[in-house]
Write a protein that binds this DNA or RNA. Structure first.
Lengths: 143, 143
DNA sequence: GTTTAAAAGTGGTGTATAGTGGTAATATGA
DNA sequence: TCATATTACCACTATACACCACTTTTAAAC
C-alpha cells in the first residue's frame, strides 16, 4: 500500500528519485507509464501484470478500449533503479505529464503517481480534492 | 474507544507525543491523516486497512474515485513510535492543521484528533459547540 | 501529608542514509 | 574517427532517525 507525498525534482538527465519509502514497496524494477489524468503511474511488476490481465478482458472491438490499451501499453517503460534509487523518465512521458523541474510523488494505493508540481499545485486542478469536496464525497460513498 | 483530552507540544523536529493512554489503544504503528475540520486524525492500522479495502472496490475510471484515492493516500502517513512514544508529523499535515507549538490531543471514538491549541481555543471554533447549540442539532437526528 | 518511586513527556546529540549534482566510461550514430 | 548521447559510477550535503539524558508529573506507600 503506497501512501504519502514527496516533493522532489528531475535533473537534466531526466532522472527522478523514487522516495525511499515508496521505493521499498517496489522490487528491483518497476513499470512507468501514462496515467489517467496528467500524471504518470509507477506500478510494481506484479500489479502491472494484474492490470494487463484486467485490460485483456475488455472487448477489443470497442474503439475506446483500443485507445485505452494504446494509452497504457504503448508508453509503458520498464525501469531499473540506479545506485541512488533513481529512474529515468522517457521524453514522451515527461512531456505528457508536463514535467519540467519540480515534481510531486505520491502513493495512491497499489500504484505511485508522479505529477508536475506546477500542474498539481494549480488552482484549477480538479484531481486535488479540497476539504469540503472531500467531506461531500464521503457522504456519497457512505463513508 | 479513545477518550480524554491532553495538552502537549510539538518540538522543532516535528515530533509529537501520543499520550500514553491513547497510545495503548494503537498498536506498534498508526496512520496520521488530514481530518475534516482543521485537525488531524490518527487511526489504528486496522481501521485504516478496512477503509482502504472499501475504497479499493470503487471503479477507478470514475474521476471522483481517483480524486478520492489521492486525497486519502497522499495525505496519509504511516507512523511508528520512537522509544518515548512520539510520532513525526509531516510538514504538509502540520501546516494544514495550523500547528506551531502547542497542540491538543483528544480521543474521538474510533480515532484520535489532533488540533493546534490556538485553533481549538479560538472563540470562533465552530467545531466546539456550546451546549444549547449542539443539543438543538442532535434533535435533528432523534438523539 | 510527606516521601519515594515509577512512568510520562521534553530536549538534545550523533550517525546513517536519502537525495542531489557532477564526472567518467561506454555506446551510438554521423 | 569524431561528436553526441546514454549509462554507470562516485562524492558531497542535508535531513531524518535512533539513541540518550533529563525533567516533570502521577501514583503509591508510609
Amino acid at each position: 500500500m503506497f501512501m504519502g507525498t514527496s516533493y522532489n525534482s528531475i535533473d537534466e538527465k531526466n532522472r527522478m528519485i523514487v522516495p525511499a519509502k515508496l521505493r521499498a514497496g517496489l522490487g528491483a524494477r518497476c513499470i512507468l507509464t501514462k496515467g489517467l489524468d496528467r500524471c504518470l503511474y509507477i506500478y510494481t511488476w506484479e500489479d502491472w501484470d494484474k492490470q494487463m490481465n484486467k485490460i485483456a478482458q475488455l472487448p477489443e472491438s470497442d474503439p475506446k478500449v483500443r485507445a485505452f490499451i494504446r494509452h497504457f501499453c504503448a508508453n509503458a517503460a520498464e525501469c531499473e533503479f540506479d545506485k541512488q534509487g533513481r529512474i529515468i523518465i522517457p521524453q514522451e512521458l515527461k512531456a505528457y505529464a508536463g514535467i519540467e523541474k519540480e515534481l510531486v510523488t505520491m502513493g495512491a494505493m497499489s500504484k505511485i503517481e508522479v505529477w508536475s508540481r506546477e500542474i498539481w499545485d494549480a488552482p484549477d486542478n480538479e484531481s486535488k480534492m479540497e476539504n469540503e469536496d472531500f467531506a461531500m464525497s464521503l457522504a456519497e460513498y457512505n463513508f
